[in-house]
Design a binder for these strands. Structure first.
Lengths: 222, 222
DNA sequence: TGTTGCGCTATTGTATACAAAGATGTTATT
DNA sequence: AATAACATCTTTGTATACAATAGCGCAACA
């Protein structure tokens, strides 16, 4: 795994906390690697929007509640578009893939155990696999790239969404609806199902953020 | 100007042609600079989608006609969204700015002279300024970032759009419509005006590409 | 006490040397 | 003549040294 992926993972998992300054030397120590590849990784992470540049050096980006709202809304816009395009451009193979990944999602759901963190991770991974398969079905590399730019919210937030079996079951049902619409080449229905699906996630996260008192005011970092 | 900006400009202006391989050493010579900053610039350009990585090294990205279509469609989606958000979030200051930039656009249009390339450049610049002001009015930094990712089509293509005074006048009118809708906080109208405006540009470019025999088939690079 | 200037330190920016890994070309063997 | 093996060359990957600069603390002065 290269420096970029390692640092990215550490940010997403919260190993580096929001606002934390990342000096090149510090990263060199952490990864036992020299500054050259670190610097390249930093440029990429900057372009991803995962880190912000200070007057001197960079820090892990912090997000406000308003950021979270805007990012989810853009995900809805883009994934909704991807879903409608998928309905038009999907092949039989794509359908199979979508059904297979959603089946795997359901299976992980069945063995999910609140006490076992790994089972949650599996659920989240299978969900991601489904979304990736759907986006790939759109046959649009550019929308895929854009969506990757708005999936930068540290996983921690995303997982607020996955805090209830009820929510997970609803996601499974939403995936079923999406597959059905895509099979029927009903682009508008696919889009609306995706919008609803993502707004569900957004609202769960925003509710959680407000409730936990972690942040609250729009302008404050979380 | 740093290495990133210089290389980016050279790609957009066509100084480096599509598909051309860019070795680090070659870029070092061109910019009279060492490999370290060159490598960082390459990583950023890669993330921008302006260059593609080969088995070994990178090359200037080439776009197919289908790429052009997809990119314009995504611009329409995102700028349409930005326009509707601008209608809701704009301040009085934003309105003034929009009117000022569109006024400047009209002025450049008035002195435009087919024989003088610089006047065309001025028109294009003022148009960009208007779009930037509009996006800024949306008060959404994330949509701004995403739009910057889909403005990677070498300027050469974009300028196909600016090949007739008629098209330019239509753009001016579209900007007026946009300002009017944004002033009235009519988000849906702003979105639809923006969609139409961008599809006009897309169609002009696609028609040109087909006519010039530069490419034609969807899968071939332009 | 506040503030201005200076010098030191921490950190980033750039160049370059060396290592590693492909690509290419050449020769020997069939 | 075709191909496999090897050597060579090109190009990228990594480490490190040195240069430049921003930030900070300290001291001198008002």
């Amino acid at each position: 795994m290269d420096a970029y992926k390692i640092i990215r993972k550490k940010i997403l998992l919260g190993d580096f906390s929001q606002g934390q300054r990342l000096t090149e030397e510090y990263l060199c120590e952490q990864l036992s690697i020299s500054r050259t590849p670190i610097r390249e990784a930093i440029r990429r992470l900057e372009s991803d929007g995962l880190i912000m540049s200070l007057k001197r050096g960079v820090a892990v980006r912090s997000f406000t509640k308003e950021d979270v709202r805007q990012i989810y809304d853009l995900r809805a816009l883009l994934e909704g578009y991807a879903a409608s395009q998928a309905a038009h451009n999907r092949s039989e193979k794509d359908i199979n893939k979508l059904q297979a990944t959603n089946h795997a999602f359901a299976e992980q759901l069945a063995v999910y155990d609140e006490e076992n963190k790994e089972t949650l991770e599996s659920v989240v991974n299978e969900n991601r696999a489904f979304h990736e398969a759907l986006i790939a079905s759109s046959k649009n590399a550019h929308v895929q790239m854009l969506i990757s730019k708005v999936t930068v919210l540290p996983l921690v937030y995303g997982q607020f969404h996955w805090n209830s079996v009820v929510g997970m079951e609803r996601s499974k049902a939403a995936h079923d609806t999406l597959i059905s619409a895509i099979m029927k080449k009903d682009g508008e229905r696919a889009r609306s199902a995706m919008l609803e699906h993502i707004y569900q996630g957004r609202d769960a996260v925003l509710t959680h953020l407000t409730k936990d008192g972690k942040i609250i005011e729009g302008a404050e970092p979380i």
